[in-house]
């Protein structure tokens, strides 16, 4: 079930969802209030990870050391606070949210997860903020990586601190099983 803004706020207050810096439901900054009826807007961080150049290689995920290789093929690029960063059509960069998200797995307490989605304003001008991995699982702790792709016909200027994506929160139903012993005796999902 998707959480309403009041349920999101309650979970934040009770410590079952931790967001840093914490959003305030009562305050308005120059860009407005991050709480929508059923989601929370998150801001773009101040750094991009940009492919160094168009190089002729293939990613082979069956080989080891992919993370180091990815790091080597990208460079960090701070986003200019005043001028922003111009994402040209067809270009792909990585960034992350300014906010850190933590969904603690608490024994006996409720657990939450979320999905990251784009915002309609950016969608209309062709910006994709994530590809096929929108789920922020229970237990997650960190900033959310954004896969930014300009599918539009014109360049898009991105500024740090702009609300660029939104999180849709859901309450996890049932106990989260993490250890193999908890599945003991079950050979099928039905427990047969």
């Amino acid at each position: 079930m998707i959480l309403s803004n009041s349920e999101i706020f309650k979970a934040l207050k009770d410590g079952y969802i931790i967001i840093s810096p914490a959003p305030d439901i009562l305050s308005l900054d120059k860009l407005g209030n991050p709480f929508n009826t059923t989601s929370l807007d998150l801001r773009l961080g101040d750094t991009l990870s940009i492919p160094i150049k168009d190089q002729p290689f293939s990613y082979d995920l069956r080989k080891g050391g992919i993370a180091s290789f990815l790091k080597k093929m990208h460079e960090r690029h701070p986003i200019n606070k005043e001028g922003g960063f111009t994402l040209e059509p067809g270009k792909f960069v990585l960034s992350n949210t300014m906010e850190k998200i933590h969904f603690p797995i608490t024994e006996g307490g409720p657990c939450y997860c979320a999905r990251v989605e784009g915002r309609s304003s950016y969608a209309r001008i062709g910006l994709l903020v994530h590809f096929t991995a929108p789920t922020i699982h229970a237990g997650f702790n960190g900033t959310i990586t954004l896969e930014l792709m300009n599918f539009g016909n014109n360049a898009i200027v991105l500024y740090p601190g702009d609300y660029i994506c939104q999180l849709i929160f859901e309450k996890v139903c049932g106990e989260i099983i993490l250890t193999p012993s908890q599945f003991q005796g079950q050979t099928t999902p039905e427990g047969k």
Binding site: A67, K71, G142
Partner: peptide, 26 residues
């Protein structure tokens, strides 16, 4: 690749390398 994270490389018991990006807390 981004602030707040590290590149992490580990070895599995069969000798293969696996890698991921982990947030600083971890």
């Amino acid at each position: 690749m981004l602030p707040e994270e590290y590149t992490v490389e580990c070895n599995s018991s069969d000798g293969n390398t696996f890698s991921f990006f982990a947030s600083q807390e971890h």
